[in-house]
């Protein structure tokens, strides 16, 4: 029984980390067709910003966390203004923006390394302690990551589906030119989505760094896992990302226990390959045309 509880809890912890990583990635793709390869670096920037305000400057959490979130928003806007906007009129926008954001990721990672060094650091804003379920210890911090990831995805889904701005985003996502002709200020929509994506990434970066550790390369693994989640759920599928993240987390923990830790990642990648062959729009998206 203890083993079963441990696997379920590990699966939920992994799932929450995957879902929190996938939020910004799936939003940008769903809304703007932008596959942001700098998403992992955005997480790094958010995590380090929280460390800078909370650990280095010693500011209280209620100042440090908003400071980090503001950093994420500014970063999102900068990438929009410096990369996405100039490339938007390019005929191969969806491809060129992938390459451009790889460059952005390298710049961010190297700036972080220059500023904070290569040594891993402890995120000072993490929650301490936890509780036991039978013999299994559950850290409060993991509970927080789990709750935040669910709240964020539900909130994002609500904004996209139920608000005026959400309708504008969906209109742009479905047909950019038609949305412009209907009077939607597409530039403002782009700015908004990039800002929200930066904000989500900052939250994700803080959450992940509290559950793991800060390092300039901490974004690679969440980026890979977020990509796996998004492909299996369907890129741009916000609700699906939540379901897929937790399902994959539990599956991974089960495989790690039953077969061995080393088999988990290959299995996830195999699932991606199978999904792309048999259902390229993702398991949870209705068809290839619909996004968000």
């Amino acid at each position: 029984m203890d083993t079963f509880i441990q696997i379920v809890i590990s699966g939920l912890v992994l799932g929450s980390m995957y879902s929190v990583s996938a939020i910004g990635l799936t939003l940008l793709w769903g809304a703007l067709n932008v596959l942001n390869m700098a998403h992992g670096a955005f997480l790094v920037a958010g995590g380090y910003a929280a460390y800078y305000f909370g650990g280095y400057l010693g500011l209280p959490a209620y100042v440090a966390i908003p400071g980090a979130l503001a950093t994420g928003v500014v970063l999102g806007l900068l990438v929009y203004a410096g990369v996405a906007r100039p490339l938007r009129k390019n005929a191969n926008f969806e491809t060129t923006v992938i390459i451009a954001t790889v460059g952005v990721a390298l710049v961010i990672e190297n700036l972080v390394q220059k500023g904070f060094g290569a040594y891993p650091l402890k995120q000072p804003l993490s929650l301490q302690g936890g509780f036991n379920i039978a013999q299994t210890f559950v850290p409060w911090n993991s509970v927080l990551v789990c709750v935040v990831s669910i709240v964020l995805l539900v909130l994002l889904d609500f904004v996209v589906r139920k608000t005026r701005y959400g309708r504008m985003i969906r209109a742009v996502a479905q047909n950019y030119e038609a949305a412009r002709l209907m009077g939607i200020r597409t530039g403002a929509v782009y700015r908004f989505v990039f800002a929200i994506s930066g904000l989500m990434a900052a939250i994700s970066g803080i959450m992940l760094s509290t559950a793991t550790t800060l390092s300039p390369t901490m974004g690679y693994d969440p980026m890979l896992k977020a990509f796996i989640v998004c492909v299996i759920a369907g890129l741009g599928e916000v609700r699906g990302a939540l379901i897929a993240a937790f399902a994959l987390g539990v599956l991974e923990a089960t495989v790690q226990f039953q077969l061995g830790v080393r088999f988990a990642l290959p299995l996830l990648l195999l699932l991606v390959v199978v999904t792309l062959i048999f259902r390229p729009q993702g398991l949870l998206r209705k068809n290839e045309a619909s996004r968000l």
């Binding site: 203890d2 696997i7 590990s10 980390m17 559950a211 923990a253 830790v261």
Partner: peptide, 19 residues
């Protein structure tokens, strides 16, 4: 047990050790 780098969630491995 061979783990994949990086690893932050050790639950399944710890379950084996505790068993």
């Amino acid at each position: 047990e061979t783990v994949v780098v990086p690893i932050s969630e050790w639950g399944p491995t710890l379950a084996k050790l505790r068993a």
